[in-house]
């Protein structure tokens, strides 16, 4: 009886469906991260400019996405905006959009933080040899900022992947949603299936997230070694 729970995973097409759900999860997280990171770098650079109105607008954008919980954002974009302004997207595209905007907001702060923590003399030396603003960012500030921001960025990525578990709220067939279907369909015959299905989902998330956080730790260590000799 005890080992019968595990058979739930391999009955019919259950395992393929879970992998399919995982693919949906990973795809949404990956596309959102790519779009969000590019947008975030641009916004982060803009936020280091001295232009006041621009900085205030971008700050508002950041605070909005940071203060409002992701659940509320998803709900707002999926249910409330379509009703009010005829803005209709399928669940998975919409999820990608919301996550991309969220990543861009968080990323802009990471990039800004990295850019202003590049030592002041670097910037001044750049100016002294006559670099214009574009060249200053392109050749001096951004290359040095990248190594500072990579660990934080990877942490952000792991957070995004974990947060995709909220997608079942907006009818996206992600790995959690499919897991629940399988649990309910087999609850009568295999009551211990819950443990195995969630266990497998845990393993999936772990296999994706752990290498990322390990990589982040390693990069951080390397950077410190380089900086401190």
């Amino acid at each position: 009886m005890d080992h019968s729970g595990i058979s739930v995973l391999f009955e019919g097409t259950n395992f393929q469906r879970l992998l399919g759900g995982l693919w949906v999860t990973v795809r949404i997280a990956a596309v959102a991260l790519i779009i969000g990171l590019i947008l975030g770098v641009i916004l982060g650079v803009l936020r280091t400019f001295k232009n006041r109105p621009l900085r205030i607008i971008l700050r508002l954008y950041l605070e909005f996405f940071r203060v409002v919980p992701t659940v509320v954002l998803l709900f707002l974009f999926y249910y409330i905006l379509p009703r009010e302004m005829n803005f209709n997207l399928p669940g998975d595209q919409l999820a990608t959009l919301v996550f991309a905007l969220w990543v861009a907001a968080e990323m802009s702060d990471i990039v800004r933080g990295a850019l202003i923590s590049v030592p002041q003399h670097q910037k001044e030396s750049g100016k002294a040899i006559g670099l214009n603003r574009y060249q200053l960012y392109r050749y001096v500030l951004i290359p040095q900022a990248i190594s500072l921001e990579i660990p934080a960025t990877i942490n952000l990525a792991t957070r995004v992947i974990k947060t995709t578990s909220l997608l079942l709220l907006i009818s996206v067939m992600d790995v959690i949603n499919i897991g629940q279907q399988i649990i309910e369909a087999n609850n009568h015959t295999h009551p211990t299936g819950v443990f195995w299905v969630y266990g497998l989902i845990f393993l999936f998330y772990f296999l994706i997230d752990y290498p990322l956080s390990w990589w982040a730790k390693r990069l951080e260590k390397k950077r410190l070694e380089r900086a401190n000799g």
Binding site: G12, R17, N177, Q180, I182
Partner: peptide, 14 residues
């Protein structure tokens, strides 16, 4: 529903 047998659920063939 996707998780409410026997009204609306998903069988093992998906």
């Amino acid at each position: 529903f996707g998780d409410l047998p026997p009204y609306g659920w998903v069988n093992k063939d998906g």
